[in-house]
Design a protein around this nucleic acid. Sequence first.
DNA 1: TAGATTGTTAATCGATTAACAATC
DNA 2: TAGATTGTTAATCGATTAACAATC
Lengths: 213, 213
Amino acid sequence: MEKDPVLRLSRYNRLLKKMKSLGFHHVFSDNIADAIGISSSLVRKDFAYLQLSGIKRGGYEIEKILSKLNSILKKDINQNIVLIGCGKIGQALLEYKEFKTDGIQISAGFDTDVNKINPNIPIPIYSIDKLEKYIKENKIQIAIIATPDSAATQIMNNLINAGIKGILNFAPVDLKTTGKCHISNVNLGIEIENLFYMVNSKHITEEINSIKK
Amino acid sequence: MEKDPVLRLSRYNRLLKKMKSLGFHHVFSDNIADAIGISSSLVRKDFAYLQLSGIKRGGYEIEKILSKLNSILKKDINQNIVLIGCGKIGQALLEYKEFKTDGIQISAGFDTDVNKINPNIPIPIYSIDKLEKYIKENKIQIAIIATPDSAATQIMNNLINAGIKGILNFAPVDLKTTGKCHISNVNLGIEIENLFYMVNSKHITEEINSIKK
DNA sequence: TAGATTGTTAATCGATTAACAATC
DNA sequence: TAGATTGTTAATCGATTAACAATC
């Protein structure tokens, strides 16, 4: 079921933070496995890979795992990210509370629309002309693109030029990873297409099976 | 390399549309494999699964493949979907124009907040009490959850009870697929964490290696 | 016919899980 | 001690590829 090992690390992180806040100090691989829906073997294997050791019968020390995960996920650095495109989706992201919980901070938004530009709000919105300079001066590594698709490719090039290392793209274009920059495309239309496919693939399978008989 | 079979289908679709526009009528599994970067066996296996047959030595008829792919990827999509949770993200989704381009239509929103409920707008927003009835009456198959995480699990159960077959979940909880329902989790925090990890993973590998030595 | 390509079975690969000895 | 949990090896599973007989 789970395909991406990195996503699993984030899930461990999230779960263990919750457990810590509930007062737990130790955890068994079995507990984690249950909560995340994988096998305990995999949890132990992941921890072994990260050079985290537990105590037989005593489990793993939550604090130790969290500090390892944090150093890996670079949360301790608490780096800022920027948002390009402050339309409906961009606005929703600016106000997305869960980011704070995760220690993620959008430090500035950028847009071409003068009506949206406003440097005097908690998360300032600047003209897109200032994007490259801002990224360089603040050594931003990660950016979110929430522009229309027509603008996305140009923006991506600007971001890469400015030194951005990772992009989360909501524009409905498949931006392609270059060696210099990781790009994660979140294409809502395709996600829903996928669901329709999944939902209807059962019928297809049944069809095929009935034909085979 | 390629993990998602559905994604492969849309790649076939894209490639073959281009070939068709260039005047081609037939294509070999080997050509497609080359262009997409997979093995010809996999192409043939995919086509076999879709009950598309070719001609030994003559290849596959592009038109036949395209019409099959279109029926799989597009036709089912003219169904309506519903949205639960009309906060910032929900609102952004309601107004997301790209959905229309893809033939996806949100027919109603649902919320607990009486201030948001309004049946007299283009996409009506109803009280969440009416959710199950609406789904059953309109035979809705797909739903989007954009509620806070605290509500998401309960909503999921209601949706499954009402007969929903696929859920796109934006709440920052990992909802788990049951046999009856496909769930696709879009967790923005985790996506960004993932990027930080990718950006920094080179250093980590080096770290681990240096420790091992 | 000789050559090329499909359709399908067997082999491979990587990721996950099961199993269990070590040991707290 | 008896019981429980880790750490690790072997088994399994699913997805992809290689190989090749069938056949156009």
